[in-house]
Amino acid sequence: MGCVRSRHIKHPPGYEDPVILAAETSFTVSDVEALYELFKKLSCSIIKDGLIHKEEFQLALFRNSNKENLFADRIFDLFDLKRNGVIEFGEFVRSLSIFHPNTPEAEKIAFAFRLYDLRHTGFIEREELKEMVLALLNESDLYLSDDVVETIVDKTFSQADTKGDGKIDPEEWAEFVKRNPSLLRNMTLPYLKDITMGFPSFVMNSEVNDAE
């Protein structure tokens, strides 16, 4: 239903008014409409219900709907704000807004913290960090001995865990990122500033009167 192009217009569950989404995010109304073009494509790539399922997200990221990846799973779970197993349009826009160049750095820092807090304890713990390093090595077909992995994790923890209590809290994380700004590199997608250029067909499907 949500996959049929039509001007009058049965939207899928989770569709939200672009005007409201623009007011609550870093996007303009036109940006949100352009994102809807992308959303329609992603949300109908496998299961044609106008919602992004995990397999569709994996297909878009990896060109492979079966590719398991810890970090893609975390991103999917964070985008799925209602935690109902799918990404709706409103969730898609609100979450992507964090990656907009104009979004305050504090929001990006907070999102990255939640991303790495695998077990939702409110802290990034040493075991979580090691698990993520091992996942990255596995994904990259890289081999490092356990001693080397331990050294990397220990060194990073000694720099980030300034209170020395064996876990990284949000305040320590924010300070660590300020000292290592490259850690936020993939939290900004410059392309989002020009999203209407990527999906010019949004003009044809716009439901918003230019005068609004």
Binding site: A60, L61, F62, F71, M132, A135, L136, E139, I152, N186
Partner: peptide, 24 residues
């Protein structure tokens, strides 16, 4: 790699490269 920050290593994951979503 032994000198690398663990989070820098992690941030190279393909799963965190959302730019891929916009590739045609």
């Amino acid at each position: 790699p032994a000198l690398m920050n663990a989070f820098e290593l992690i941030s190279t994951s393909q799963g965190l490269n959302l730019g891929t979503l916009f590739e045609k």
